[in-house]
Simulated assay, not measured.
Amino acid sequence: MKYTYLLINIFVILFPLALSFDKKVFFFKKWKFVAPAILITGAVFLVWDLLFTQLNIWSFNPGYIVGIYLWGLPLEEMLFFLTVPYACIFIYECLNAYFPKNILGKFSFALSNLILGFCVAVLFFAYHRWYVLINFTFLFFVLGYVEYINQKFRFMYKFYRMYLVSLVPFYIVNGFLTSIPVVLYNNKENLGVRVGTIPLEDHFYLMALLLMNIYLFEFFKSRGERKPIIV
């Protein structure tokens, strides 16, 4: 059905959007921080997406999209960079509001180092594959910056909790996208390892996408919520 990918996008954002007015989270009041984070990150990933489409690293099944293209990308793919980050930032804020205690605070730095080491190892053995090269290089630099250079606000322990929770809808949504399939992958450009029908790289692609969104969200929020100095 040509509306499949569009319906998946609607499903992703439907409940987070409807619940954005929850009185404990008041997520709608943070839209002014959410919007620039999503738009800036989306612009970066759209360039990435366009490059991958042109290089035939992945493609889109015309039987499951409405057929509207912008800059060579299906409309639904562009919406993906709005709906998924919005839903996951919403999850992030809900977890922080309802479950302020977070045991990952003790382990987040070690976990980041483990992921950075994994990025280096994968790049060493498979740097010649485009999806591997760009995906893990990007994640390495974004995660390295957040953990080792950014000192203004620390949020990785909250990020990892959100990421783990987000894997549940990720497996549902990406499971549909890769099993139908709506998105087709060129296995010559990835590791060829799949979790069900989902390429292993997609897990780290999601991590990079969400990490950039959350960093920018926290950045704009910290600036917006800074109390003015009264002289």
Rank of each mutant, 00 (worst) to 15 (best):
A37N: 03
A37W: 00
A37K: 04
A37I: 05
A37M: 08
I38C: 07
L39K: 09
L39Y: 01
L39R: 05
L39N: 03
L39Q: 02
L39C: 09
I40H: 01
I40Y: 00
I40P: 04
T41F: 01
T41R: 05
T41K: 09
T41N: 12
G42N: 07
G42D: 04
G42H: 00
G42W: 00
G42Q: 02
G42P: 03
G42L: 03
A43G: 11
A43L: 12
A43T: 12
V44G: 04
V44I: 11
V44F: 10
V44C: 12
F45A: 03
F45R: 01
F45Q: 06
F45C: 08
L46T: 08
L46G: 06
V47Y: 00
V47A: 02
V47K: 00
V47R: 00
W48T: 02
W48K: 09
W48Y: 11
D49Q: 01
L50A: 11
T53C: 08
T53D: 04
T53Y: 01
T53W: 02
Q54L: 04
Q54A: 04
Q54V: 01
L55E: 12
L55N: 07
L55T: 02
L55W: 05
N56K: 15
N56V: 06
N56R: 14
N56T: 08
I57T: 10
I57L: 03
I57P: 01
S59L: 13
S59N: 15
S59V: 13
F60R: 07
F60Y: 13
F60H: 08
N61E: 14
N61C: 15
N61Y: 05
P62W: 07
P62E: 07
G63C: 15
G63L: 15
G63F: 14
Y64W: 15
Y64K: 15
Y64S: 15
Y64E: 15
I65E: 05
I65S: 12
I65M: 12
I65N: 11
I65Y: 12
V66F: 06
V66I: 15
V66K: 14
V66L: 14
V66E: 09
G67C: 07
G67A: 06
I68H: 03
I68N: 09
I68L: 10
Y69S: 09
Y69D: 11
Y69V: 09
Y69W: 09
L70S: 06
L70E: 00
W71F: 14
W71I: 02
G72T: 03
G72F: 00
G72L: 06
L73P: 11
L73H: 03
L73C: 07
L73R: 02
L73F: 04
P74E: 02
E76Q: 08
E77Y: 03
E77A: 13
E77K: 12
M78K: 13
M78N: 13
M78W: 10
M78Y: 03
L79R: 13
L79D: 12
F80G: 05
F80M: 14
F80W: 08
F80H: 14
F81S: 06
F81V: 04
F81E: 02
F81H: 05
L82R: 08
L82Y: 05
L82D: 06
